[in-house]
């Protein structure tokens, strides 16, 4: 019972902060919409996509990149939550959270579930706007992607948590942008199918193939068409577990996450 009281409070607080930070909400939507409405429009003529699962017919580039953009929203949100943790920690409230008598793994799980809920909310807002602009998917697809969104949200949120335990200062977030967000996004199947990448460079193809974000995007893509992709699901779930273990390790008092400040 006590566990769920804390979970409820942490999710409510995260949601309240998110609603308060309207510019963050708008930015979270504008970024993928620019990709969808500008970038994709420009590239649709240049890029021909042959038919490959889960697609059963020829699709436009806009349709192809939507699952990748859902992943992008979750990637940015996961990292932004880590930014808020660094900020929290500097302001003292993370310290307070960690001095709660509840087990630390549970407190971190609560934080993770809270940031995942916000990510999912953003993805659905994005899908609604995309639908208004004519990029629509099978109706049941909007429901069947929910488990995939939860898993991918947890995976990227856990990665953010793990990184936040290592980041010493707020300014280092720029480094996370350059060395985590961009490589993860561009070296994945978010913007182009992997077989296209293989045609250009086998090395890059293999990097994309070991990037867990690729599997997150594919999990979302297949779920959107109600098709199973056990491999992508299994890798996304395993990556979530590994990142979460990393986060719990990073915040282990025996390691002393605050030691880095001195």
């Amino acid at each position: 019972m006590i566990y769920f009281i804390a979970l409820n409070a942490i999710i409510k607080r995260e949601a309240f902060r998110f609603v308060q930070q309207r510019e963050r909400f708008v930015a979270a939507l504008v970024r993928p919409l620019i990709w969808l409405l500008v970038f994709a429009a420009g590239f649709r003529a240049a890029l021909g996509l042959s038919i490959a699962p889960p697609y059963e017919t020829y699709i436009t580039y806009e349709v192809y990149i939507v699952p990748g953009l859902c992943g992008m929203i979750m990637l940015f949100n996961g990292m932004q939550s880590s930014l808020s943790l660094v900020y929290d920690r500097e302001m003292g409230s993370m310290r307070l959270l960690l001095t709660s008598p509840l087990p630390r793994w549970w407190l971190l799980t609560c934080k993770l579930l809270a940031s995942t809920s916000i990510s999912i909310l953003q993805v659905y807002c994005f899908l609604a706007i995309a639908a208004c602009f004519g990029t629509v998917f099978p109706v049941w697809g909007y429901i069947s992607i929910l488990p995939a969104l939860i898993v991918v949200g947890l995976m990227l949120g856990a990665l953010g948590l793990a990184l936040s335990s290592l980041i010493r200062k707020l300014e280092n977030f720029a480094g996370v942008m350059n060395f985590v967000i961009f490589p993860m996004f561009f070296l994945s199947s978010a913007l182009y199918p992997l077989w296209k990448m293989a045609e250009s460079s086998l090395v890059l193809y293999w990097i994309c193939a070991v990037n867990p974000f690729t599997y997150g995007v594919e999990f979302i893509r297949f779920s959107l068409y109600l098709q199973p992709n056990a491999g992508a699901a299994a890798i996304s779930i395993s990556a979530s577990a590994v990142f979460m273990i990393g986060a719990i390790w990073g915040y282990d008092p025996a390691r002393g996450m605050m030691k880095s400040k001195s």
Partner: peptide
Amino acid sequence: FQQLTLDMDLTVNQNLRYFAALQGI
């Protein structure tokens, strides 16, 4: 703590409710 731990944009009551929940109340 030395640093302020309250959320500046929440009321005193909302802040205290959050911390009460972290203690299971």
